[in-house]
């Protein structure tokens, strides 16, 4: 049974709902539509015509240019090499922050000790720190660790600043697991790791999905840290994209810019489209039960 069935809504009402949803969908799709259409047009058409009009001479050339031959810095190499940099950075950071979040979330949800609430509050408040103010001190720490300008440095920074959110997700999800289950296991003499491994992890798939999606999108789209702590060989995709689109002087090739922008957004878009269902399921399974 759903709310809808209970309410026994009539046809007109249902039609109104669909109409509202379609109007909202238009609002949501306009920017995407605009980018796709204009990435296929030649520059002259973009300058002269209606920006919502379909291309007269559609071509995928600008996509190819953005991918492999656009000028990024002194070399015409396109965005391709930076994709690899981003992947090298995103995968380890997502794994580290998610694993650490699941441990600390579990402990904060199910272990009682003095100051546990305050600790959770402190970790949560960390989500709100504006990243602009941590740039200089973080640089100092990375310099001391000899990690400046390296992928490893970026991984460290992204893992750390993701902890607040991953801890929140896991702690909230684990709150919904009945404590009796854990107590029973404890009485049977199960150790911490055994409980985590055998009882908690099998129930965690949905919240892992939520955490991984959230972290992947945030880290993939991050610009500030990538620009500040990435070296010549580890600059992520967003930095390259920024270099492509925000050159100060010279002709702006909007079609190439849009094509590049869409390319850069593809991985996260695919994740959202493919796993959206699991995402909602993961949140439903408990991570919003504050």
């Amino acid at each position: 049974m759903t709310i809808k069935e209970t309410l026994k809504l009539n046809r007109t009402f249902e039609f109104v709902i669909i109409a509202i949803m379609l109007i909202l969908a238009t609002y949501f799709l306009i920017p995407l539509y605009l980018m796709i259409v204009n990435s296929l047009k030649p520059l002259s058409e973009i300058r002269g015509g209606n920006m919502l009009a379909l291309p007269i001479e559609a071509s995928l050339d600008h996509w190819k240019t953005a991918w492999s031959s656009a000028q990024i810095g002194v070399q015409p190499i396109g965005l391709r090499p930076y994709f690899i940099n981003s992947i090298k950075m995103v995968i380890p950071s997502v794994i580290i922050s998610t694993v650490m979040g699941s441990f600390s979330g579990f402990v904060l949800a199910k272990w009682r000790f003095k100051g546990d609430e305050i600790l959770f509050g402190l970790i949560l408040f960390g989500c709100f720190i504006p990243f602009q103010i941590v740039l200089i001190p973080t640089a100092k720490v990375l310099g001391t660790l000899h990690l400046a300008g390296s992928v490893q440095g970026l991984i460290l920074v992204h893992s750390v600043y993701g902890l607040g959110f991953t801890t929140l997700f896991f702690r909230n999800a684990y709150k919904t697991i009945p404590s009796e289950m854990i107590q029973a296991a404890q009485i049977d003499g199960a150790s911490f790791m055994y409980i985590f491994n055998r009882i908690i992890l099998p129930l965690s798939t949905p919240v892992f999905v939520v955490s991984i999606i959230w972290q992947t999108t945030n880290i993939w789209n991050d610009f500030l840290f990538g620009a500040s702590f990435g070296g010549a060989a580890s600059q992520p995709l967003t930095v390259a994209l920024n270099n492509l689109v925000s050159s100060s002087t010279g002709v702006k090739e909007y079609n190439v810019h849009f094509a590049g922008a869409l390319l850069a957004a593809l991985p996260t878009l695919i994740i959202y489209f493919v796993s959206g269902k699991y995402f909602v399921r993961g949140l439903t399974s408990g991570s919003v039960k504050g």
């Binding site: 610009f223 957004a265 878009l269």
Partner: peptide, 10 residues
């Protein structure tokens, strides 16, 4: 899923 570096121009 998309950053504003991307959608800002649009």
């Amino acid at each position: 899923a998309i950053s504003f570096i991307v959608t800002g121009t649009a």
